[in-house]
Simulated scan of single mutants.
Amino acid sequence: MSVRTALAQTARSSATRAPARRPLSHRLASSSAPPPPAPTAAEQHAARQLDWPTYLSLRKSQRVYGLVASIPTTLIGFSAGAGYFATIESDPGDLIFGIEPVYAYGLATLSCVGLGWLAGPTVGGALWRLTHRNVAKAMEAKDKDFFRHISRWRADPSRQSATNPAPDYYAEKVGSLRQYRSWLRDQNIFRRKAAFGSKDEAVL
């Protein structure tokens, strides 16, 4: 595949379909953070081992691994927290940070549940890499290439508001070229609303 990758072609085709909006996109993009450094020759070679549809499909499966792994890690966090704090004997009159021990231990157990949920993507990612070791280096290089595209085309999140939240800043839900095109449209819609407001808020 040439240097002009499929994602860049998709982004350019999305911009050319609405030529009147392109100057606005460039003006808004000028206030965003600078793009990451260019890839090295080794990274380019590794990234070319995967085409974009295959990469996005693998990226989607990696995310599914993390979500599925969050289920047992959450249960383990709950079991460990409840099992430990339920065995602690305490006097109801002794306050912990100003609250009764039963409520303090309940909050601590919920914290263990939250830590278990947060550990899920890490555990799932490790399992995914073990089962996909043949594409691990190519995926790492392609990840860097993908996030270079994302950082170039995503909207400035500092312009978000309660009625216009920033859409999927890290493009975590992108698992195909169709979803990538949809992500680009969402970014353009966000820019237009941030600049001019919605139709109901438009000044006549």
Rank of each mutant, 00 (worst) to 15 (best):
M1V: 13
S2W: 13
S2Q: 12
V3S: 13
A6E: 13
L7C: 04
A8K: 10
Q9V: 14
T10F: 00
R12K: 11
S13I: 03
R17M: 05
A20V: 00
P23T: 03
A29P: 12
A29V: 06
P34A: 06
P36V: 02
P37F: 12
A38W: 07
T40W: 03
A41L: 12
A42Y: 03
E43C: 01
H45C: 08
R48G: 07
Q49V: 07
L50F: 00
W52S: 06
P53L: 05
T54N: 08
T54W: 02
Y65P: 04
T73R: 13
T74V: 15
L75Y: 11
I76D: 05
G77T: 04
G81V: 02
G81F: 01
G83M: 03
I88L: 01
E89R: 14
P92A: 09
G93A: 06
D94V: 14
D94C: 09
V102P: 05
Y105W: 09
L107G: 15
T109Q: 15
G114K: 11
G116L: 07
L118R: 14
G120Y: 06
W128I: 14
L130E: 13
L130H: 15
T131P: 09
R133P: 08
M139R: 09
M139H: 11
K144I: 11
R148L: 08
H149V: 08
I150G: 02
S151T: 15
R154Q: 02
S158N: 07
R159H: 10
S161K: 09
S161D: 03
A162V: 10
N164E: 02
P165H: 08
Q179S: 14
W183D: 01
R191A: 08
R192Q: 07
R192I: 06
R192V: 09
A195M: 01
A195T: 01
K199E: 14
E201W: 02
E201C: 03
A202P: 00
